[in-house]
């Protein structure tokens, strides 16, 4: 069903799934599985932080608990059902923070940026689910739109929410991110997925809000290939997706200067976020998603070994 695609020389020997194929799959879980299962077995150790098999405590069995986690020895001694809880179950909260402003609803490649972001979020959620992390989702545009608090049982709710997401209002970072940062009660892994259309000087303080309480922050910066190259052919005017304002342009003459500005913006973000110990992953939506994840998770694994 899936047609693997040779990534364009990024990871030799690896075969990745073309985003176009992912767009044809209706089921987000299946997408996530297809993306993640393909490479996760190749990793020697789970890359997500908080993975642990250390015993934490017993608690009473509640209907719905996995029967395999019942401690039968305790049952034999006490005649009561207890389940074992491990450190890993309580350590890691994964907050997927997804920008759903109107500017994300653009795509010249197989998927729009929003679709790509959904696949990415679903895949990350799937990885976390495999690691038994708590998964939550927050979407925002100029305000917070939807919040699914992190829970081990919220994987399906997250997928469901992702599935019915639609791009809406205008982008704003400072207000929504500040409120999200304030709402994170315990140390979490926060993944921000956005196209980051704002000056660096405005973005950095906003993003920094998410690092409160020692949160670990990963920023996925998504851009469409056209947004990088401005190869618009004989287009003579552009209309802002969010504001609707029009601007006459001579695209061919502006390409070089435009690309330089975008690259500079991207480089500046990478440098400044890196300095703040924020993981910054620039993603071109024409790249295979599993390739991006593979690269990212490999990096994380390597870093975790050295941390």
């Amino acid at each position: 069903m899936l047609r693997p695609k040779e990534a364009q020389g990024q990871i030799p020997g690896q075969r990745f799934i073309d985003p176009e194929v992912l767009t044809r799959i209706d089921n987000l879980e299946l997408v996530a599985r297809s993306v993640v299962d393909g490479f996760i077995s190749g990793l020697h150790q789970s890359p997500m932080l908080g993975m642990s098999v250390d015993f934490a405590e017993h608690r009473s069995y509640m209907p719905g608990d996995d029967v395999r986690r019942i401690d039968w020895r305790v049952f034999a001694r006490t005649d009561r059902l207890y389940v074992k809880e491990f450190e890993a179950d309580t350590n890691a909260n994964l907050h997927l923070v997804l920008d759903i402003s109107k500017s994300m609803d653009f795509g010249s490649a197989a998927a729009t940026k929003l679709e790509y972001a959904k696949f990415l979020a679903a895949s990350l959620a799937y990885v976390s689910k495999r690691q038994r992390d708590r998964i939550g989702l927050i979407t925002f545009d100029s305000d917070i739109v939807e919040v699914i608090p992190p829970s081990i049982r919220h994987f399906n709710a997250v997928l469901h929410a992702l599935d019915r997401l639609e791009a809406g209002g205008r982008s704003e970072y400072h207000g929504p991110l500040q409120r999200i940062g304030e709402s994170l009660r315990r140390r979490s892994l926060v993944v921000l997925i956005s196209d980051l259309y704002a000056p660096v000087e405005q973005l950095l303080p906003a993003i920094d809000q998410l690092r409160q309480r020692g949160n670990d922050l990963i920023v996925f910066h998504l851009l469409d290939p056209l947004e990088l190259s401005l190869e618009l052919g004989d287009v003579t005017s552009v209309e802002d997706l969010e504001s609707g304002s029009r601007l006459p342009i001579a695209a061919a003459q502006l390409q070089q200067e435009y690309s330089q500005l975008v690259r500079a913006h991207q480089a500046e973000l990478e440098r400044r976020l890196g300095a703040n110990r924020v993981d910054y992953i620039f993603t071109d939506t024409s790249q295979p998603l599993d390739s991006v994840l593979y690269r990212y998770l490999s990096d994380r694994e390597r870093q975790s070994r050295t941390r």
């Binding site: 653009f106 196209d195 259309y197 469409d224 003579t236 802002d240 029009r246």
Partner: peptide, 8 residues
Amino acid sequence: SGIKFPSL
């Protein structure tokens, strides 16, 4: 020849 673009 106009086009919608994410951000100007």
